[in-house]
Nucleic acid binder design. Structure first.
Lengths: 199, 199
DNA sequence: GTCTATACGGGGATAGAC
DNA sequence: GTCTATCCCCGTATAGAC
């Protein structure tokens, strides 16, 4: 039997974060009320403040958590292989990772403006770190003569935008599998940076 | 001498739209109050309702106006030239047009979820129309043997995302002119669809 | 066409009982 | 740790005077 009152500190915290992530992604940070979040979790609004200082800190914590997870996941993949293999791994990793966490990705791009300047700077730095790994790969490949990348910074922006864009249109019920999508984007990427072979 | 009261119907309407566009882009639709918009325009909140039925209709009208302008502007450019020239023109047109209207572009991507289903369907149809012109160019070029585009639909998504992404990073005070940016993106586009020459 | 005033609901956040 | 109750502010939208 579920208790309607009492201590649930171990599960309520995560549930608040899950509910907030989903609601912020669906309706936008400003449009979601603390009462809505509480209602999803099954507690009263006041109880939320046992877990978070305020609404803004909740958003910042979600975004920071997402960026930390993303960087850790990429670090776990990025170890071996030559430059071309690293680039291919980045392309496939980015598409897959984003498709698996649409809510977190959506919020990360849409709700940055609702952060305080301090929180914004922190999240931006993490994002910059992630994007720099791609830029590093492009520069390495260019210097090694494997790629032709006249402007690594711009190419990084272009690639990130292109890859992240998959989230706006891909549906698992559609005509393409995730693997097929990754193949297509890897082909486009390879051509964009003029990698030597199309094998 | 400015009147503090009286009739200004000819200028208040446009000023409401300009203020709303700017504020929605800056803070998000849900976070902006009618009182804020009125204050920017220099009227009381109640006076806004002489021009718009409600807040939601104001947003829909801004988005519809933007899409109408976009389609008209592209129609005015799209008349002549072979397929490769048309594609190059699309790339440069899209980047320039977006950079000149950052607020409208931002809102068009961020605030779609705040539209009623009817308004959303309308705006989406206009956006689809615009993107279809690009897909048409890619299909034409592929069939004519000028491009190699295995999946025109996905390539369209990829190109639109890549080009629209310029707005997130470009600053006129930065190291690149708009022309240089267009050149870089056109090179990347040409390679992506494997257009015959790189001249 | 704009004003003032206001209706009415809902927002974030806190206090104190249990 | 959660509840109920509440504070205080602000939201959209309307009514009626000028």
């Amino acid at each position: 039997m579920a208790r309607t009152q009492g201590s649930h500190s171990d599960i309520t915290g995560p549930r608040i974060r899950e509910a907030a992530l989903r609601l912020f992604a669906r309706h936008g940070f400003a449009a979601v009320s603390m009462r809505q979040i509480a209602s999803e979790v099954g507690v009263q609004a006041g109880a939320l403040y046992n877990y978070i200082p305020d609404k803004q800190a909740l958003l910042a914590s979600l975004l920071r958590g997402h960026m930390d997870d993303l960087l850790a996941a990429w670090q776990a993949e990025a170890t071996t292989g030559d430059t071309t293999e690293k680039l291919e791994r980045f392309v496939r990793f980015h598409i897959r990772y984003n498709l698996e966490r649409p809510d977190a990705i959506f919020i990360s791009y849409m709700e940055l403006r609702n952060l305080t300047p301090e929180n914004f700077a922190q999240i931006e730095a993490l994002r910059k770190t992630y994007e720099s790994t791609l830029e590093g790969i492009l520069r390495d490949g260019h210097e090694a003569g494997r790629f032709d990348v006249p402007d690594p910074a711009v190419t990084t922006y272009a690639l990130i935008a292109m890859l992240t864009g998959v989230n706006t249109w891909y549906r698992s019920a559609g005509r393409l599998t995730v693997d097929e999508v990754c193949d297509i984007y890897w082909t486009m990427t390879r051509r964009m940076i003029a990698a030597s072979s199309e094998a």
